[in-house]
Design a protein around this nucleic acid. Sequence first.
DNA 1: CTGAAAGCGCTAACAC
DNA 2: GTGTTAGCGCTTTCAG
Lengths: 348, 348
Amino acid sequence: MPPTIYDIAKQAKVGIGTVSRVFNNHPSVAEATRSRVLKVAARLNYQPHPYARGLARNRTNSVLAIIPFFTTFFFLEILQGVQAKLGQLDCDLILYGVNHPDQVEASLRHNALRSRVDGILFFSMSMPDAFADQYLQHKIPVVLVDAFHQNFDSLSVENQQGAYIATKHLISLGHTRIGMLNANLESVPARERLKGFQKAMREAKIALEPRLIRKSTSARLDGFTRESGYELMKEFIALGKSMPTAMFISSDIQAMGALAALTETGLRCPEDVSLVGFDDIEIAGHLGITTMRQPMYEMGVLAAEILAKRMQHPQSEVTHTKFVPKLIVRKTCGADLSQPALVAEHVA
Amino acid sequence: MPPTIYDIAKQAKVGIGTVSRVFNNHPSVAEATRSRVLKVAARLNYQPHPYARGLARNRTNSVLAIIPFFTTFFFLEILQGVQAKLGQLDCDLILYGVNHPDQVEASLRHNALRSRVDGILFFSMSMPDAFADQYLQHKIPVVLVDAFHQNFDSLSVENQQGAYIATKHLISLGHTRIGMLNANLESVPARERLKGFQKAMREAKIALEPRLIRKSTSARLDGFTRESGYELMKEFIALGKSMPTAMFISSDIQAMGALAALTETGLRCPEDVSLVGFDDIEIAGHLGITTMRQPMYEMGVLAAEILAKRMQHPQSEVTHTKFVPKLIVRKTCGADLSQPALVAEHVA
DNA sequence: CTGAAAGCGCTAACAC
DNA sequence: GTGTTAGCGCTTTCAG
């Protein structure tokens, strides 16, 4: 029912080819003709049919975002960035949520090439080899966000660097008995955050005391839970006098549990112990948790840009971009809030 | 490069029509032929091209979800439901996020009919008349979620009923001095929640004391903020002895602020005052806030179902479905946790 | 600069 | 049952 190029061609007294050219900004069309076509099109409220266009051009102008539905709302923000960029590129965002890590493969199989999208954004999950091969072979542009694979463009957060910054912040505040409350070392981010912590401590020539570095052993969410924060903090509290005066905690959600343990024991933050978390989840702001923020929106924008580039130049070299999280100073670290925060760096 | 029906027709020694029939489960095709076709298709890893199919069938098998990006992650959960259903219907979900209420119109204009989707899910925003007319006129199936419009199918939450249930719960716990901490009455949900509160109180023959019913006057987010909860709770605390022993709070985020005010004053919850919130945002679980949960996933599923129905029967009567939130008993209400919770009802 | 025509991959109506 | 054919709406040569 909506008008087609035929309708507008007829009314503008030109051929359909010309109409098409006008809508594709083809240079060789007389200005007079162009404006005549445009006027008719406007009057008829014409919109090119994306599917017909897709068929003819052999591309779909849409990208698939595969995200884990089982994680936090981290993604909503990244998606905002993705979409802002995609909008500029006049591209649709097709969302595909996966409910469980195990389910990735089955999901992909179903969705695989069905949608013939122009590109895929793959979030936070490890890409099963079978699909990696398939995408590579079919030369389907894929960008990994918060994940890594040798052969795909990827975009991730510098966990080690973030932990390093967080720890240095604590050191700069004058602390010397600094602990780390970590998640399960099974998790890659947990390991990297530990490394960053250690590096900052070593550089400051502060001895690393094993009992001040505690990690979750829980399998659930790799220990990135409120419970693990609570329990580990109880252990720290049990240290009594030798408890750290400052701690770097591997995630805000754990910091939240830690805070609860502190309050329960009558200890105060930052007066008795200073804390820096990681992630900057929404609640961190409410609780005043100083933390390391990941530039999610920017990551989304860049992910879309990289995908677009890859679509244009399929053969260009694979890139791996790292984002350095930014220190957000709030009250749990006990810093003077008038001091300027460290600025995020964007390493290409 | 991927195989087409022609490829598989040739190899299976049939006409393309037959191949098409096989893939559309058309009854009149011999079992032998069918399996032969299927085998070739499997070998070639054939997948029908959705755009070609869409063009020919004159439908796209995709729906557009227009969501406010500026709100909470409420949507991620609804989207899960939407997608689960859409997946069954073999339909793609195209996401379009709007960043600001004012921007809805501009966004729609851009996106309007560009994507020729089969249907639209419109979330939590009021649909500008110009678009309502347009959608209606073009007979584009639209379902409103958490919003209302006379002429579109809609799906929303029974705020009044939810508040009623919450308040009754407090009453059933033996409280008689019950207050309400409300958001800005500019907001429709705030008004409805107030009505539900009043109804429960009247039924229980408890006099409504104006000073125990306080509302935010903030314009920001209609007072659904932590700050408003904090400040209003301070007012309640200032009441001293005449402070309520239980309160219904119009949102969890406000309950969070209220809790902070309580803690700061050395008051305990639920010992000194019992609280019931609304929404069941993620943090409510962490804080142990008793609250009214909206069946978000289910709403998503139903939204998709209704949209599907509307697509099939464009002329059927418009439906307005209400969901009654469910009481989630946690610790802030002071209830005996072994008692069975009220069950959500689903009113068609 | 512009019109005509072929074709993108598939569906559906029509014959046989 | 199955092959054939005419589109779906648009892009893109190819002439002129």
